[in-house]
């Protein structure tokens, strides 16, 4: 029962924080969204009514993620993650070590 209450508490806090983020992003997204009028840059459809993008005709590929399919390629992102975490951790360790050393120097003098 106690655990269930704790889980619920975590979920409620996460939902509240997520809700605030959603409202913030949604509000900024809708206020920044450009509005297109018919004579303000939207391409006019040809008489046939079908939009055909420039390119090689048959092989139209919509824009999207470049990592959709994926699957055990070179783990560059994993290495990047490890390097970034090591740098952050290293900087913290140096600062913590320097702080301890300064403290020791003060107490011995």
């Amino acid at each position: 029962m106690k655990t269930l209450f704790r889980v619920l508490l975590i979920l409620v806090v996460a939902t509240l924080i997520g809700g605030v983020m959603y409202i913030g992003v949604d509000a900024s997204g809708s206020s920044n969204a450009p509005s297109f009028g018919d004579d303000e840059g939207r391409p006019q459809l040809p008489a046939g009514g079908e939009f055909r993008p420039d390119g090689d005709g048959d092989a139209f590929r919509p824009e999207g993620r470049d990592h959709d399919e994926g699957g055990l390629g070179f783990p560059g992102g994993v290495i990047k993650a490890l390097v970034l975490m090591s740098i952050a951790g290293g900087i913290y360790s140096v600062i913590a070590w320097a702080g301890k050393k300064a403290k020791r120097t003060v107490t011995t003098t």
Binding site: V7, R65, H67, G71, L72, F74, G76, G77, V78, K80
Partner: peptide, 29 residues
């Protein structure tokens, strides 16, 4: 693994991330 969708593929990236949410709740507990 989730930090590299190129490596895992998008489906694993997304489902594993959802599963991670559960482990984080257990970590907090």
């Amino acid at each position: 693994v989730t930090m590299d969708p190129h490596f895992s593929g998008l489906a694993i990236h997304e489902w594993l991330s959802i599963a991670l949410a559960g482990t984080i709740v257990v970590h907090l507990l």
